[in-house]
Design a protein around this nucleic acid. Structure first.
Lengths: 391, 391
DNA sequence: GAGTTAACTCAACAATATTGAGCTTTCAAG
DNA sequence: CTTGAAAGCTCAATATTGTTGAGTTAACTC
């Protein structure tokens, strides 16, 4: 699928208003609780303009009043915060054999989730599953349909006919139709599509570790391994939506150069376990195997260390992020082990004297990361100002 | 130096106007010649709005009328194009021993250039040199001072106290003052600062090979080697302005892993030549040595091949650019040789079936690349809409 | 208790873009 | 050759939105 960058760029009263609305909403989200005067100062708008938009947001139930805050002299400022029930985002992760879905509220809390096996891997089966899941989640959570802000879809990349397609990630059922438009029509909702790593990266900003960060890189353990890079609060998607294909970069391993994915990925781990006759299906399985200090797993961890260090070093030097986050479909225990065992090189732009936080963080983990990420895409969009710089 | 992302985000009538002005200016630049109706359609503004802004731009001499274009039925549209003499950009490249400078007009043509040795490597000497160069260039080109849009400054990175500082790139004279503010005051001009690779990347967009591209990566041969990544027409500068430090990423070389810079950079080449007692100072020297098929040079080229392939492969897979551009302080001949000899891996997101142009391009080369890039930063800024997405 | 500070509202105002009517110029069909 | 359609453009009226400044309220300070 081709990413169409924003084309409409001219500003008029209406677009300025919706832009300002998003700006204010985002300000409220990042601040947690904040008053009108504060918002005005930090956005460069007049109090009056903020007041008008706040009134709008209140009547749309996107925000709620939170009492007054006495600071010092003067009239105590009325505080506002996001209204969790003001909007909901549907997240959908499409896999070859099943569809996962979750519903998040405006604050990023999971309200409901559901999984459904696919009876066939074709477009109709997927469409039907997605529609059913939407209805099931709405019903289970007693959410009125008109409170749905949109749907985020996660599908494995890469998008389009690139040199790194292979049988494991391919989803040829969308060959002749743009999946975003198709699903938007089927769900009767606005739709955003991203790959798993990008969605997970955005999720981290909405609910997780990256909430204070504007520029960071997320290394995502899916089946393979992916990178979601966020720069100045914007996703780096690449010219064709395939940026962050970190799995295929060459890293030093055992004296020669190997693709990162072959050393550091769920796939490589499960393959290694399989060779020893150990079956591991779920994140929980892996967690148990780690707890038992299973030898193959420990060996895999050791082999993964150097290649992962090299990859992180590359990411740091190319993106200069505030932090690198490790997350995805792995148990906490394994991610934590990796983070503990890695020694990041001193020769890196990220090794700053004025650094406050750690260079490496653990992000959201577990099987649902990408699904939650899908929903987070929608929430993120709700908070992203519309008049973007010309692309 | 810390990059301050745009903070002002709220839109009002005035900001919307200046935003639209930049949008239209950029549209004219990319189109070359274009009429009002066309601009209106491609920006989502009304003809009337475009007309008003065009009138403004005409009276500011930023654009000029270019006759009428008869297409089919209807009133032939009046065409507009940039007015080269409507504005000028000063580019300054600060080196430890000298300052290079150039003056570009709005269309990116070089109007004048000048070099000046530094009598000392301290702040006052630099300030004095920069002021003198500004005046010399204005006088030589008979440009009135009020037509200067601003100054772009290029200094070698990385900025701030990072783990990769070393004696060769360090510029400690700015330790206690923000160089952008200092120089802005000294020059009485708005100032933009970037490292050499980033500036060169932007220059390519304004005048060079990348004029049609929105997402591309520029590998820059300075003293070392740097990367300037442009994503959706925006520079990826990183959280602290140090993104693109590609010189320090590990690449496979001679069976082991080496920093790219040690294999592929001007520095490494000059060092290799020096070991054989061959002195090479300038780009022209290198060109002559290449023409003479000097053996050390040819050996260096061969050794550079694999590491460079690995680096480009990494860049492609992480950024998914439309193209990778090679340029900088090297002669055309050597850059072309490298481009000819490189074999890019098929396993890359950039190996697309629908690809039209080549994956690898040669950019601007020669000693002045960074200086011209510095000026291009200013021109770029002139065309970049002001209401940016919240950072 | 008087003065100060700060948040907030109201009403008048200003900046900008949009809309629709009308003019002009070109092409094409009869 | 005439007429009508199509497209670019201008003018004047209108709409949307944000800003400004005066006035109100509520807290703190002396």
């Amino acid at each position: 699928m081709i990413k169409t960058s924003d084309i409409v760029v001219g500003a008029n009263a209406g677009r300025a208003r919706s832009h300002n609305r998003q700006v204010i909403l985002d300000r409220i989200r990042t601040a947690g609780r904040i008053g009108r005067a504060d918002i005005a100062r930090s956005t460069g708008l007049s109090t009056q303009a903020v007041s008008n938009i706040i009134a709008d947001l209140l009547s749309d139930r996107m925000i709620a009043e939170q009492g007054r805050q006495v600071v010092g002299r003067g009239l105590p400022a009325v505080q506002y915060a996001l209204n969790a029930k003001g909007g909901f985002a549907l997240g959908v992760e499409i896999r070859p054999d099943a569809v996962f879905s979750a519903l998040l509220n405006l604050c990023g809390d999971k309200v409901a989730s559901e999984r459904m096996s696919l009876r066939a891997n074709d477009r109709n089966a997927v469409t039907e599953a997605v529609r059913t899941l939407r209805d099931t989640l709405l019903k289970a959570s007693k959410t009125p349909k008109n409170r749905l802000l949109g749907a985020g879809i996660v599908m494995p990349g890469p998008f389009g006919e690139t040199g790194i397609r292979d049988g494991e990630t391919e989803l040829p059922i969308w060959a002749d139709v743009a999946p975003d438009r198709w699903l938007s029509k089927a769900l009767e909702l606005p739709v955003v599509i991203e790959n798993d790593a990008n969605a997970a990266a955005i999720a981290e900003r909405i609910v997780g570790t990256a909430s204070g960060l504007k520029t960071y890189a997320y290394i995502y353990f899916g089946n393979g391994i992916g990178l979601g890079a966020v720069h100045g609060a914007r996703l780096i998607a690449g010219a064709y939506g395939n940026a962050g294909e970190i799995g295929h970069i060459p890293v030093p391993a055992a004296g020669k150069s190997m693709p990162l994915e072959s050393m550091v990925s769920r796939m490589s781990l499960i393959r290694a376990l399989g060779k020893e006759g150990i079956a591991a299906e779920s994140v929980d399985d892996l967690d148990r195997l780690y707890a038992a200090k299973t030898q193959v797993l420990m060996a895999w961890l050791e082999n993964a260390q150097k290649p992962l260090e090299a990859a992180i070093s590359i990411v740091e030097n190319l993106f200069d992020p505030e932090a690198v986050i490790l997350g995805g479909a792995m148990p906490d225990s394994i991610l934590d082990h990796l983070i503990r065992s890695l020694t990041l090189p001193d020769k890196s732009v990220s090794n700053r004297e004025d650094r406050t936080g750690p260079r490496l963080l653990r992000g959201t983990s577990g099987r649902m990361t990408a699904t939650l990420g899908a929903a987070a895409l929608v929430i993120n969009q709700t908070f992203t100002p519309k008049i973007a710089a010309q692309a």
